[in-house]
Amino acid sequence: MKEHGMSLPVKRITRITVALIFFYGLYIAIHGHLSPGGGFAGGVIFALSMIHIVLAFGRENTMKVLSGAAASMLESAGALAFLLIALGGVFAGAFFLNFLPEGEPFSLFSAGTIVFSNMAIFVKVGAGLFAVFLVMALLRTDDSVQNNEGEDR
């Protein structure tokens, strides 16, 4: 069976760094209401961690973890979740109303719906950006096959 991706040392290191990058993205998203960053920035970092896996292990292996179709579904689900949070406000009084208790300023569990909106954006942006990268990685012309000599990147 053909080996996908880069050499063994790269794969070893990637196993460690990917988790770090992923959790950093999650951290940025969860602390969106407290520090710079938020759902969008966190989502981009999440997508970067997935792209890291594609580069090191090849896209065939990555697609077993998160396929393009699944990423597309996740993206829609994230957007829908964001809309539902905004809709929840309608039943409490106004579109996008922050209907949850705001809590103590500067503590992690505060800011009501903003945390959940950030998580929805995190999923949407992360999955969406990864899906875009996957589409670009899947599209290859005859030229690129020749240059890479069939190697999967």
Partner: peptide, 13 residues
């Protein structure tokens, strides 16, 4: 805005 956005996000699912 809500109706068309909801349609756009539900259809791919």
């Amino acid at each position: 805005v809500i109706i068309p956005l909801a349609c756009a996000f539900v259809i791919p699912l």
